[in-house]
């Protein structure tokens, strides 16, 4: 059986893993290569690096980091944050990433999805959507770390991104992100049933049951960042619980 993927996300600033909320009070949390290795050993099915480096000069370090990680960690690696051009995508993939995640750049110019998908294959183009509920059963897309409301309907944008060649949707609920009171299940259901490609649930995980709820809502993968960083839950604990709920996960027999 195809397993639901459990994915830890690492926020990376100038080549270091950082912890903090809403880009404030960032604290150093280690070397991304070592953290990725540890998550791999714990049974992570994939690792996401989200580059939050603000300055342009700091951005070359992410490619170097991807290179080092991919020499030592042999599970899929997705890199997002600040990717603007097809050339940026090429550099990150050449460095050893398996997928890139596009967010603001894709909203600004959706054609980049088509160009990148045609050139590198849909399987490595993830479109990240930061969605916020604005009315009953209605969500709009926010960009630039959730600061700007594009007034684009999130479900419609997901469909469009897939039609342009996105191979996967990374769906973050801005309302739930950081709250630890569960993923936005309604949003997840809407997007998941509207697109043919896998959807990664993000934002709001706080308990093992939240992960199960996301799976029931149609998520192909479940992502969390701070929950795993702070050791509030381990990947093993999440997988063990999902298995106990008859949700297929990799390596559950060994955890």
């Amino acid at each position: 059986m195809l397993g639901v993927r459990v994915i830890p996300c690492l926020d990376v600033n100038k080549g270091r893993v950082v912890k903090g909320t809403n880009f404030i009070n960032l604290q150093d949390a280690g070397d991304p290569v070592e953290v990725a290795k540890r998550y791999n050993a714990e049974g992570a099915d994939e690792v996401v690096f989200l580059d939050i480096t603000a300055s342009h000069e700091g951005r070359d370090t992410i490619a170097d980091l991807v290179k080092k990680t991919s020499e030592q960690v042999f599970i899929p690696l997705t890199v997002g944050g600040g990717i603007r051009t097809v050339e940026d995508i090429r550099n990150i993939l050449n460095a050893g990433a398996d997928k890139v995640s596009l967010n603001s750049a894709a909203v600004k110019d959706p054609e980049i999805i088509r160009q990148a998908s045609q050139r590198f294959g849909a399987q490595c183009i993830v479109v990240a959507i930061d969605a916020k509920k604005t009315a009953q059963s209605k969500w709009t897309v926010f960009v630039h770390g959730g600061r700007i409301d594009t007034q684009t309907d999130a479900v419609e944008w997901a469909k469009k991104a897939v039609s342009l060649g996105a191979g996967e949707i990374l769906l973050t609920s801005m309302d739930k992100d950081g709250t630890k009171d569960g993923y936005d299940i309604e949003l997840l259901k809407e997007v998941s049933k509207s697109v043919s490609v896998p959807v990664i649930a993000s934002g709001g995980a706080g308990t093992v049951d939240h992960f199960a709820q996301a799976c029931y809502a149609g998520a192909s993968a479940v992502l969390a960042a701070s929950l795993f960083h702070y050791g509030q839950l381990t990947i093993k604990e999440v997988k063990k619980y999902l298995r106990s709920k008859q949700i297929s996960v990799r390596g559950a027999g060994n955890v």
């Binding site: 059986m1 195809l2 397993g3 639901v4 993927r5 099915d45 849909a122 399987q123 191979g167 996967e168 043919s196 490609v197 896998p198 149609g218 192909s220 993968a221 990799r250």
Partner: peptide, 12 residues
């Protein structure tokens, strides 16, 4: 139809 394409992830 609940099975997604591509077939992406870890399968036995």
């Amino acid at each position: 139809k609940s099975l997604k394409i591509p077939h992406m992830g870890w399968n036995t």
